[in-house]
Amino acid sequence: MFKPAFWIGLLLSAVAAAHAGTIEMKVNGLVCAFCAQGIEKTLRKNPATADVFVSLENKLVAIETKAGLDIDDAQLKKDLVASGYAVKSIERTQTPLATIRERLKKPRR
């Protein structure tokens, strides 16, 4: 029979797998909201996308993926290039998109 530690580990793995992931991309050329809306439109079409956040200030495009789903780097780069932009870096985190949105939003100067 399996020890309790096994079941705890299995449970934690299941929780981690079910948790939505966040993909943060640094993007060059993000200077105009009017122009960048194509990025959001393209990324939202991906069935793995739950939400998209764009910050011109931080040159950041962040995607929250649906639970248990991911978008591979090749597809992300392809989508950004197809939108007319250049990807500088891609990083995966467990920070919820809402947290990133709140952290980066600031009052207009």
Partner: peptide, 9 residues
Amino acid sequence: YEHDYETVA
């Protein structure tokens, strides 16, 4: 001012 994605430019 520098606008952002969700603000008026």
